[in-house]
């Protein structure tokens, strides 16, 4: 574990999570959630869990973003909160 990287990534992680949940445009929200996925993938790699890191990169940042975008395109893009 590399402590400076650790602290920087974790702070960005909280910021990305809060922004993703507070943006009213759901498509932007899905993209910021993809950023959150990549940040957490970086965090796993930095903590020595490389197998978890590449699973998170494909599944967490890739497939879940595709699922979110597909759902938003089939429903409504605006959110009330």
């Amino acid at each position: 574990m590399i402590l400076p990287f650790d602290i920087i990534i974790l702070v960005f992680l909280i910021v990305a999570a809060v922004i993703a949940l507070n943006v009213k445009d759901l498509l932007s929200s899905a993209m910021i959630f993809a950023i959150y996925g990549f940040l957490i993938c970086l965090l796993w790699a930095e903590m020595g869990a490389v197998d978890v890191a590449f699973t998170e990169a494909t599944v967490g940042a890739g497939i879940s973003t595709v699922l979110f975008i597909a759902t938003i395109l089939n429903t409504r893009r605006r959110s009330s909160d």
């Binding site: 949940l21 929200s29 959630f33 759902t71 959110s79 009330s80 909160d81």
Partner: peptide, 21 residues
Amino acid sequence: VGLWSLIAKNNLIKKIMGLAI
């Protein structure tokens, strides 16, 4: 943050995002 989103958010997609977080 995830739990707050599950409870307080009004939009279902935001709730699911909170579940993932």
